[in-house]
Nucleic acid binder design. Sequence first.
DNA 1: TTCCGTTCTGCATACGTATGCAAAACTGTT
DNA 2: AACAGTTTTGCATACGTATGCAGAACGGAA
Lengths: 338, 338
Amino acid sequence: MHGRHKGRVITAEDVARVIGVSQSTISRAFSNPESVSPATRARVLTAAQSLGYQPNVIARSLITRRTNIIAIVMANLTDPYYPQILDTLTQAIQARGRQTLLFIPPEDGTIDDTLASLLQYQVDAIIIASASLTSEMARVCAARQTPVLLFNRYVPGVRISAVSCDNVASGRDVAEFLHGSGHSRPAFVSGEHGATTNADRRAGFVETWHELGVRSCLQVEGGAYTFEAGFEAATIIARRKRRPDSIFFASDIMALGGIHALQQAGLRVPEDISVVGFDDVPLASWPSFNLTTVRQPLPEMAEAALDMLALDDKAGRRRRVTQFVPGTLVQRGTTRAR
Amino acid sequence: MHGRHKGRVITAEDVARVIGVSQSTISRAFSNPESVSPATRARVLTAAQSLGYQPNVIARSLITRRTNIIAIVMANLTDPYYPQILDTLTQAIQARGRQTLLFIPPEDGTIDDTLASLLQYQVDAIIIASASLTSEMARVCAARQTPVLLFNRYVPGVRISAVSCDNVASGRDVAEFLHGSGHSRPAFVSGEHGATTNADRRAGFVETWHELGVRSCLQVEGGAYTFEAGFEAATIIARRKRRPDSIFFASDIMALGGIHALQQAGLRVPEDISVVGFDDVPLASWPSFNLTTVRQPLPEMAEAALDMLALDDKAGRRRRVTQFVPGTLVQRGTTRAR
DNA sequence: TTCCGTTCTGCATACGTATGCAAAACTGTT
DNA sequence: AACAGTTTTGCATACGTATGCAGAACGGAA
């Protein structure tokens, strides 16, 4: 029979009283089972079960100074790629016995306020997958010993842990693949201005074409990782006299917008022009799109992130580095084979 | 002896010592500013600022018995509709000064284990947007006075708060709209078997056609809210001798799969056959799709949900009801006008 | 000044659990 | 039976904050 005691929550004390042991024993039975005799442990668990007792992890964390909660800061939840990140990260977090506190920073405000209110919750770590953080806030977190990690982004020159896809290498891969399949007039459409993801993908792509002897890589500024931005960029490209034979978009969603624009302009994909995206969102593999793209290794990135946070390492020995995980080119139907 | 770490956290006690007041005063300055004189309040805030003090809300919640954390249980995060729900709910939760703890139940396991580990976190409320919960677990939550609310679903006959789109009414709307625009051979493609969302949309749709004098509404079992399920259902429909002139899919994603199948089969949408979806995911409004659909009023649903939880009502007077919020038919390009 | 009423502050304790230390209960050996 | 060594348990206290209660400080009126 579960505790029907009007509203009163069942505490370890209650269980202790029932089976005639001390509160300490109840605590130990749950948080350090080895330290209690098998017989009492069994009695404790039975009694707890029938009373409906569950340890109060909030109270526990007051002592242990660990909440087992990891905060994820994420905006852009309507962008199809971010839910994938959130899903993967959260599952990895739960697999390690932790929980996820989700913070969506307000549109206008700075992320600092968000972060501050977040620290009040004594989270064990903060994973930032949107925007960045100010150096001021990095200082505050460091002072509080709260590890912070940037996911899918990094800030060059700032010593904050970060995990990101190896965007430069993937940019190179795409260039080499396009070159190898007979393309010679490449174009790159960038996404959000100033994002490292963006800059790195372009850098790898453009450089490689240079190395391959192709000097003229058309570069169009998209401005945002959106369908519309991709659409507009592709519209401009389609109108050019000396039209590129392949476009590398900084994200899948942009690529889809781009394809739509190209088709509107009477061009066939991939016969007239090849298109490559980035991220491999679920949409990309739908038959309607069948988009050639670069898959970010999210599971590996999530593992790397949690390893880097060293949650079980009480000595607090964390390495602050930026780790790059290689992506995979997924060849589908928007690039011609030869 | 605890807390001998060099990175000692600043407590209210520390601030108190600095400006020569008691810990109580610090506490009051933050949690009940009215109860402290303006002069001391200012001194407290300044000192706190310079010391980097932030109240520990975990410790606070031990006393107040409120964590200000609301749990959201959600699977299917890769489905485009759920991130929208999560985004809207979380923003609404944050707007009310609460935070979101995100739980993704394991694929195989029952939701009960998830819920149990969740209760340990002393969340103020639980919003379930995936699966349902057993009556056993409903009882446990009730015993703990933790309000539970089903979002976007409800369990007929069980007294658990729920907020859902008025799927029956929307089904009717779609039927009336199609009828009014000259359609006479409707079809309905269902999604996940057993979901109330599904059954209600169909019920409203089919019943209305009956009332309008159309007895034969083709019904195809999709089986899941996926692109593939929609694709396969539409393939079957396209092959029929007496082909429907309109299809109402139980979700947008299914409709998109269906459109792709119809086009594969050489049919034009909407000239040869009209298509209506449900949810109005961001994709639906993309020019490539331009899907006629029913928009679920997520912001209103989120408000209704939080109101129903009566978080600020310490008397715990909550009404257990199922609230239906009406959706809106959004007419776009996949239905012919006349 | 005295007195009363109000506002402000401090003291002490409580929230539910974890844990160092010492006492108690076993275990096996002589 | 006595002992030492080991395991198991209980006591007391700590974690950081909120809050009832009583006392202090203050303001105004007589």
